[in-house]
Amino acid sequence: MANENGILIVGETAGGHLAGITGELLTAARHLAETTKEPVSAALIGEGVRGLANQAIALGADKVYVADGPVFKEYLNETHVAAAVAIAKEANPSIVLVGHTPNGRDLGPSLAFRLSAGISTDNVELAIDPATKGLRAARPLTGGLFRQVIAIKTKPQVATVRVKVFEPGQPDSSRQGQVVTVNANVTAPKTRIVGREIPEQKGVRLEDAKIVVSGGRGMGSAEAFKPLEGLAALLHGAVGATRAACDSGYYTHDVMIGLTGRVVSPDVYLAVGISGASQHMAGCSGSKYIVAINKDPNANIFKESAFGVVGDYKEVLPAFIDEAKKLIAST
């Protein structure tokens, strides 16, 4: 392809709405478009997504490409990549942004290969190189200890963007845009979804929680997580865990936070018995305040915390919970 122009974001939907990442990607795209002066478009793939196009326009899209139909109802690599390829061929963008979400991580690399494009994943900073006008995408290296800045030699340039790095803008319903329906010819897919397992949602969703109470391997047992659950309930927060804690069977994997787990950015992230490995911090370093309880004064978690207590959580935590209860009851 030639004359590539514009920034295309691949949106996501959830429960009949645009998912948060769609607004985040539109913010990222508008930020790049300030420099490139290119139009911003959004791809929406799913069943009944046409009705969401105006919301994408309100959040910053100039044009929305829609692949709508029952075959796209559920995310499936085969069908959604095919639709994204068809949209990218029609839109002919210079940059494609995809969320680094469970499905975006899956779609992004497959899409890049199908477009013979270079790709950088899990980016936490995006900029335009003033000299080359190309994308400069910064991503973690060595589990997050370092960052590398990637330039992509092809057009389009494909990048997946970490969740919660950009903030969705306020929707502006007066924004005008165009909606284009793309006929993505998806022939009978070879793969299909035959089952789902959805864990019970206890209390607030992790990503929405203002307070996250997380436990690590230092908790020492599954039992020890009970008070964390109590504390989370008291503070209207949610429970998280490290991979080491989940792998040890102390808590369920679906609340694992980090590079390969979920990304949270609450006001308070209380880390108990967590060493603060870079791969874990990748999932919580956007928190406003990290508060750590750890018996090792040299633990890395203290380097990223605003407040902390050095000591055995078995002695610190019950007193902390008691006092927090009193303070909350007194207001």
């Binding site: 270079g118 290296l141 997050g144 330039a151 992509i152 380097k303 605003a306 007193a319």
Partner: peptide, 26 residues
């Protein structure tokens, strides 16, 4: 290779921890 590393750096954290102490851990 379709990509190139054009720079690398160490991310800076500006956080300074305030360690809370007491007569004992409780």
């Amino acid at each position: 290779s379709l990509t190139e590393t054009v720079d690398a750096y160490v991310p800076q954290s500006s956080t300074k921890v305030e360690l809370v102490e007491g007569e004992n851990l409780a």
